[in-house]
């Protein structure tokens, strides 16, 4: 576990030095919220029906940018081979990468939500519950995304391919996260069914990823 954190630490250290990925993720999610603002007109009615969709589109699309670079940086200078030479299980590489992706996602989401609140002059009720849904949804997104990012890094059209193969797999996350967010925003706190699906999804894909990650980075 210490070595998983070491991998994540190394990623974040390099990332905070250049901030290339983080900046583009932040800007992109900002852009998506703004575009929705333009699309819905300046003062949309029933904002609590739009908010979940806008937020989750922003999270997943901006997150996609980060994921697509996650393993690309390892390909330079053969670093992925360097990692594979380290005396750790392949799954440690997966966990390390997932941790750094999670942290970048949380930072991006932590900025996007206030931006949304300000732009749409909408005070989000039940922030605690929203936070929990975002946590579980993001975990699912990152667990699958990290695996598929490692998978596409060796293909020719990785930038296009990753969204195409990732989004259909993410349907349960997006659907239940949006559904749960919608309910919470309209004051309904009975979201156990959604949370159950999100939790199961996270658990299943984390285990599946640990089992099959090694096949994605083999040669």
């Amino acid at each position: 576990m210490r070595r998983c954190l070491n991998i994540a630490w190394k990623d974040l250290r390099a990332e905070f030095r250049t901030k290339q990925m983080l900046n583009s993720m932040l800007l992109f999610s900002f852009l998506i919220v703004a575009i929705f603002g333009f699309a819905f007109g300046p003062y949309p009615e029933r904002i609590e029906r739009l908010a979940p969709g806008v937020l989750w589109v922003a999270f997943t699309f901006a997150g996609m940018l980060g994921l697509s670079r996650s393993f690309a940086s390892e390909k330079e200078q053969g670093c992925l081979d360097g990692l594979k030479l380290c005396p750790v299980d392949r799954s440690a590489i997966y966990i390390g990468k997932a941790i750094s992706n999670l942290i970048l996602m949380f930072i991006m989401e932590g900025v996007t939500i206030p931006v949304f609140i300000v732009l749409f002059d909408y005070s989000i009720p039940n922030l605690g519950e929203i936070g929990f849904v975002v946590l579980l949804g993001t975990a699912g997104f990152v667990f699958v995304g990290t695996l598929l990012s490692a998978l596409t890094v060796n293909t020719r059209t990785r930038e296009i391919l990753l969204p195409v193969i990732l989004f259909p797999v993410l349907v349960p996350v997006i659907v239940s996260a949006v559904s749960a967010t919608t309910k919470v925003l309209s004051g309904v706190l009975n979201i156990l069914d959604e949370l159950r699906i999100l939790g199961t999804y996270d658990a299943i894909f984390f285990i599946v990823a640990l089992l099959i990650f090694e096949y994605t980075i083999e040669e």
Binding site: V144, V169, S176, S179, I197, T200, V208
Partner: peptide, 28 residues
């Protein structure tokens, strides 16, 4: 060989999520 390996990984991932897809869509 790489094609077979990578698509097998996706073949597993794709199918595993299907029951949850159905459940979540049903709920929604």
């Amino acid at each position: 060989e790489r094609r077979a390996r990578l698509s097998s990984v996706f073949g597993v991932v794709a199918f595993v999520g299907v029951p949850l897809s159905y459940l979540s869509i049903h709920l929604w």
